[in-house]
């Protein structure tokens, strides 16, 4: 297999995402721009300009018709994938850190940052898919503030009106977004910030990565830790391989805490682990800085 290097961002990436068919890859970065790429040859299909701050997160719907993005300019935007047109913009008091589509593409969940006296807030919006979809309701369908440590990542689960969240304290929890109540939680899932959360194809389990240098597979219903992958570096992202029993972990010492510019100290390799045996099976070198995000085509 030949690696394809995609060059198109001027600052570090924050999240990448495949569409369901796997022919497109969305990437967002601190340079305010969202790019979309053909995965088969690495050619850039286009960019989505409009955000005026770091784009923290993107998610694309199952038909590759729309995608949403969240940014440090306090905006959540809905875009048309094909035309590159921004269809709707929601404004919040603080930055948007995470967005995710529901399975049926009818809802979007977003987390806004806890800052300047505003609490960390989770909102769920109903997305209207009628016409060109530029008419959306301004107000969220559901809104609540998770108590305790702020949420950093979230995703819809297979159960109705339940979302899975990862928190700054290392906690993972299930929230009912209709009532805003915490259904279940595992306070000790990680011992440091949960940095990424990716669902299995059927959403029965998920993988979380954390700065505590480990990644874990959780049962999304019971929150039990099924598998643990312990590495020697803070992890920024973890992904589950489809149809193969592997997981992919990425991370590395942050640039500010690397004392000398030696490659080996940063541990910027992408790691492959066996999902079931909890054993490392391989590493891929090549990065010169910490890996911020990684993803598998599911």
């Amino acid at each position: 297999m030949r690696p394809i290097l995609l060059q198109g961002h001027e600052r570090s990436l924050t999240q990448i995402k495949y569409n369901r068919d796997g022919d497109l890859l969305f990437s967002c970065s601190k340079d305010h721009v969202i790019n979309v790429w053909y995965t088969h040859n690495g050619e850039r299909l286009g960019t989505y300009d409009g955000h005026n701050g770091t784009v923290w997160t993107v998610d694309v719907d199952s038909e590759s018709r729309f995608f949403v993005s969240g940014s440090a300019d306090n905006q959540l935007r809905l875009w048309n994938v094909a035309t590159g047109k921004c269809l709707y913009t929601w404004e919040f008091p603080t930055a948007v850190k995470r967005v995710a589509f529901s399975e049926d593409d009818k809802q979007v969940v977003c987390i806004t940052e806890q800052r300047m006296g505003y609490q960390c807030t989770i909102r769920v919006f109903n997305i209207s898919r009628i016409g060109d979809s530029s008419k959306q309701s301004k107000e969220p369908a559901h809104i609540f503030n998770p108590i305790g440590s702020k949420a950093t990542v979230c995703a819809f689960t297979s159960q109705p009106s339940i979302i899975f969240t990862g928190h700054e304290s290392g906690k993972v929890a299930l929230f009912n977004f209709k009532t805003g109540e915490e259904v279940d939680s595992n306070e000790r899932a990680h011992s440091d910030v949960v940095t990424d959360l990716q669902m299995s194809p059927d959403k029965t389990y998920c993988i979380t990565s954390s700065k505590d240098k480990s990644a874990r597979i959780h049962d999304t219903k019971t929150l039990d830790v099924i598998k643990t992958f312990t590495t020697e570096t803070p992890l920024n992202s973890a992904a589950i391989a489809p149809n193969k029993p592997y997981v992919l972990l990425g991370g590395g010492q942050e640039a500010m805490s690397v004392t000398t510019t030696s490659l080996r100290q940063g541990k910027f390799e992408t790691r492959f682990w066996h999902k079931v045996f909890e054993e490392e099976v391989g590493r891929v070198k090549g990065h010169f800085g910490p890996i911020n995000t990684c993803v598998f085509f599911l």
Binding site: K203, T204, Y205
Partner: peptide, 13 residues
């Protein structure tokens, strides 16, 4: 475990 959770998923949806 996969079989179990799949079954639960089937029932749930």
């Amino acid at each position: 475990w996969r079989a179990r959770s799949k079954k639960e998923l089937g029932e749930g949806q």
